[in-house]
Design a protein around this nucleic acid. Structure first.
Lengths: 346, 346
DNA sequence: CTGAAAGCGCTTACAG
DNA sequence: CTGAAAGCGCTTACAG
């Protein structure tokens, strides 16, 4: 690797050029360069210029590793997601990546698999890597654990309401979303509406269920508990839930699933039993995943802004890192009407 | 934060415990502890024991940041994927994460968005973060660029064949997959089979197309170029491709799409024009995505082991990092028969 | 406003 | 086999 060679390669980052080298080139000390880089002190215009020049011509890029060691920032933020392999979180991760990169930070993604212990491990690992802050998407950690974490470094958590110094949270109005889906079905004339819940311990699902109950009651309807079935958010569980109901000869004309994946499964279950959607049974999901846009028939669903959620979480982290407290608001849920629900003909 | 408090929190990583502290506790020097940790030298049994004890009782975890600075390993490997938000890459990312973690490495995921320049940036960023190696999933970088990169640090790339010292590659037999899908349709009696290609510059898609051509010719069939249409791997493009064909009154009884997403789109397009799958038109996809398992009807597809691909790529990296050259083999493609294809009735 | 110096927590020649 | 020392590239009190 000749020097010539390394000069040639255009994208070749910061190879050997150190802060010492730009200091020398600019005729100042490394301390001064550092201060200019960090905006830590006011510097004379002349020196600032000289340093800027040196940086540009040498193509200097600060070494985040050294920065991290020196107790400065690593310019990286940990992002714990529940899954790397989920259509729902994927959009959020991309949103986080975009915003973080724009602000000069690098995300460190790691997945907790919906498991509290695993999530603890993730947080520890992230801290040992000296991230500047941690974003948790739908954390499994308890409120106290989160609060404790936030005393060490800035934390942003989605999916719950919890505020503290250095801790920002971002939550979606699942209750309202649940009501919207149910009211829509009610307006179409449906009265016997199945609700397929997600994991029993999952708050999002419970809130959506509350919205469902609220809407039915507000409509003067009693709730038939046989219409409440449980899945685990997977397509398979949605199909099984519906087939179980059909086998038990429970009558219904509509299904509201706590997420799109179960709604998709429910549609398949109905299809297997020869029931046409939406002619015989209407189906509404929750999340508005890409997969629902192209299934047959395209799925009516409550839109959840997962990409924006990722972006907002990242912005909140950047604000926190800047020493201010963010005040961000997620868009309200809204129903996206497609073709899986229609008038009740029962 | 009292010391008591920090002792209590179980997952609380490596807080202030440094190599210096364990050295003191074990009655040896930091150098010795370091050597034991890195297996760099043979150490007397007694000291090894003492150090192990000290590490355990203090709960010492090496600081990867310091390690990285000192020129040692950072125990992190960069993973550039094309998308954070794709059902296909998601499974691969999870595979990578599992294997890397098991070996004590942390992945640094970053997405290149199918863009060569962007990918260059990713690689630079990763290098400035001092990753020990880089895994690229379906890299957009040219062979020479990859070779150049591999002279700096270990590289594993999927989706092409390219070997060099410090560079391992892993590719899937797309040609065979293309043949399998086509031969299957041929066996079902189809003669007019549409092929929906992905992006024109995408090698995977071209290889699958080659497989398609090969199978048809081997069957003594001439290829009607009107049956070759192009999409961009998205559902939408699959739907549009099919609708275009139908509008142009091109006759066909089967569709083979270069990926599942376009196959799903094709099914929707057929549905919109009132064509029943598989009664009137058979559809076969490629990838075997989760979304295809639960669509209606469930999609017959060529299984691509994306999760294993991620795992194998990570294992290859670990082998490279250990100074050996990996020799890994991806499973062969195989067709998963579901319900979207049936006998030709045209 | 700006240097020189110490230090972050490790690793690695260099000497025993 | 094992220490003491230097150094990785930065930041940050400490002194001007």
């Amino acid at each position: 690797m000749s020097p010539l060679n390394s000069l040639r390669s255009p994208g070749a980052a910061a190879e050997p050029v150190t802060i010492e080298m730009v200091a020398r080139a600019a005729g100042v000390s490394a301390s001064t360069v550092s201060r200019i880089l960090n905006g830590t002190a006011t510097v004379s215009e002349a020196k600032a210029q000289a340093v800027a020049q040196a940086i540009a011509s040498l193509g200097y890029v600060p070494n985040p590793v050294a920065r991290g060691l020196a107790g400065g920032r690593t310019l990286s933020v940990g992002v714990v997601t529940q899954s790397l392999d989920s259509p729902f979180y994927g959009a959020a991760l991309r949103g986080v990546e975009i915003e973080l990169q724009a602000a000069g930070y690098s995300p460190l993604f790691i997945s907790g698999q919906w498991n509290e212990r695993e999530e603890q491990r993730c947080a520890s690992l992230l801290r040992s890597r000296r991230v500047d802050g941690i974003i948790l998407l739908d954390a499994r950690l308890s409120d106290p654990a989160l609060l404790e974490l936030a005393r060490r470094l800035p934390v942003v958590v989605t999916g719950r309401k919890l505020e503290a110094p250095g801790l920002a949270s971002l939550s979606f109005d699942n209750f309202l979303g649940g009501r919207q889906a149910t009211e829509y079905l009610l307006r179409l004339g449906h009265r016997r509406i199945v609700f397929i819940a997600g994991a029993a311990d999952h708050q999002d699902s419970s809130e959506r269920l509350l919205g469902y109950r609220h809407a039915l009651r507000a409509h003067g309807l009693r709730i038939d508990e046989r219409l409440l079935v449980f899945g685990d958010y997977s397509e398979r569980s949605g199909a099984e839930a519906i087939e179980g109901l059909l086998d038990a000869r429970v009558a219904f004309s509509a299904v509201f699933a706590a997420n799109d994946q179960m709604a998709l499964g429910a549609m398949l279950g109905l299809h297997r039993r020869g029931m046409a959607v939406p002619r015989q049974v209407s189906v509404v999901g929750f999340d508005d995943l890409q997969a629902g846009h192209f299934c047959i028939p395209p799925l009516t669903s409550i839109h959840q802004p997962s990409h924006e959620m990722g972006q907002l979480a990242a912005q909140a982290m950047i604000t926190l890192l800047a020493g201010r407290h963010p005040d961000l608001q997620l868009p309200l849920p809204r129903l996206i009407e497609r073709e899986s629900a229609g008038p009740c003909r029962a």
